[in-house]
Design a protein around this nucleic acid. Structure first.
Lengths: 145, 145
DNA sequence: CTTATAATGAAAACGATTTCCATTTGAATC
DNA sequence: GATTCAAATGGAAATCGTTTTCATTATAAG
């Protein structure tokens, strides 16, 4: 029911993490890539058959997102991805349709506009989704070659 | 597999529309609101039991999006919405989490940046997704009151 | 009219995510 | 250490929007 999840200034990480949360966070910190819940579960189980179940992974991700330690990214293919972020921060991506690589945008286009949107539309922003698709430098080169 | 769908400059509408496409388009043009495939199907069937089936609605939407007559909008709740657009155009929304209303943004923040992103990251944009969530003027008032 | 092709429909299949519910874990207390 | 209760966990079943499958009709040529 919650529309989406991406925005700044949350109450960042504190409180103790459950076992599941710690395991999930560990995977995301190592990987440093956009990973789906099932990816994460797979990696955990591969390393150890007794690792947290899929349900726990989903629940852990939900908590971590709520705590602002992880952000979820919707690439529009029906499978959400997750990645660690600076507590309470967020960022957007340039996603290459050639190789799948994703580059972080170093600034948020939307935050800059919060005030002007409030002034113009009377609309108060609480979150937003922004992802950009295209071709990265490398893939542009190889297709020209 | 296709990441998402939102971007400008497509080859706009030509070619003849199938029966299904015409019916779907008619609904969207009357409604002028974000509607899901199932919404559209429901409205069609309500008006006429012999109306196109759900499968055809999905296929028609796919075609219409491809032709640039309709854009799909992902609100992150697992159900895509659709709306008519100026052929080949697109736009983004401010979506109120209070009343569900959506306001069109009158300009695309991302297009303006295509050149600078190309210059800075070497990344060539082909499409993007941008939706903003929050509270509209009306809902802000009533919650203060 | 005959024929090849695209469009359509209903039902089954899919697949990520949720929900159920019984079991285990952990911390607080006795 | 034993007891207790709530939170965490796991596996299987259920959800649900969307896709596939496949057999049936329009549609357009020839």
């Amino acid at each position: 029911m919650s529309p989406a999840g991406r925005a700044g200034r949350s109450r960042a990480g504190q409180g103790k993490l459950t076992r599941g949360c710690r395991r999930v966070l560990a995977v995301l910190e190592q990987t440093r890539e956009l990973s789906s819940a099932q990816d994460i579960h797979g990696m955990l189980r591969q390393a150890e058959p007794e690792a947290p179940g899929l349900t726990t992974v989903y629940r852990s991700l939900e908590s971590l997102v709520g705590m602002g330690l992880v952000q979820s990214v919707d690439l529009g293919d029906g499978e959400k991805r997750y990645e660690v972020v600076e507590p309470g921060e967020h960022h957007h991506h340039l996603i290459c349709q050639g190789c799948g690589a994703s580059v972080h945008l170093d600034q948020c286009l939307v935050e800059d506009l919060e005030k002007s949107i409030k002034a113009k539309y009377g609309f108060e922003i609480s979150s937003h989704v922004l992802e950009v698709f295209g071709r990265c430098r490398g893939c542009l080169k190889s297709s020209t070659k």
